[in-house]
Computed example of a mutant assay.
Amino acid sequence: MLRHTIKEFIVRHLHQARLSPSEIAVAHHISVRYLHHLFRHEGTSVSRFIREQRLERCRADLADPLQAYRGVAEIGARWGLADAAVFSRAFKKTYGISPGVYRAARRAATDGAAEPAPAPGSG
């Protein structure tokens, strides 16, 4: 129950670049050591959970045509990854492709799917 509450708190505060285990522990009136203990039971860490959640939100925004007006670095900063180089390296390490290339590939896939199919007999 507490772990679920903490995860919800983290997700609500992902945009805060300074979100840290100590801030999370204080907000939940527990020690940082106990916070780490809760996440260790799932085979992860607090920092890894935060990074994974941030990167997933960034990935979703990069794929979202409604977010096309935002730059790649702006999307990273929006989710608490204020250093563009760190964001780009983490994204590439996680997804195997840079954020800009990922966005371009998603845009190309979406644009190709949005084109109407040729009429029968017109080709």
Rank of each mutant, 00 (worst) to 15 (best):
M1P: 12
M1N: 12
H4T: 13
K7F: 10
E8S: 11
E8M: 08
F9T: 00
H13N: 15
S20R: 06
S22C: 09
E23I: 09
I24C: 13
V26H: 06
A27G: 08
H28M: 06
H28R: 01
H29K: 09
V32G: 00
L38N: 02
H41K: 15
E42S: 15
G43K: 12
V46K: 00
V46M: 05
R48W: 04
I50K: 00
E56Y: 10
E56C: 08
C58H: 01
A60H: 11
D61N: 07
D64G: 04
L66G: 14
L66V: 13
Y69L: 10
V72N: 01
E74M: 04
I75F: 06
G76K: 00
G80W: 07
G80H: 07
A82L: 02
D83C: 01
A84G: 02
S88T: 15
A90F: 05
K93C: 00
Y95L: 08
Y95P: 10
G96Y: 02
S98Y: 06
P99F: 09
Y102M: 05
A104Y: 07
A105I: 08
A105E: 15
A108C: 10
D111M: 07
D111S: 09
A114M: 13
A114Y: 06
E115D: 11
E115R: 14
A117I: 09
A117P: 06
P120T: 08
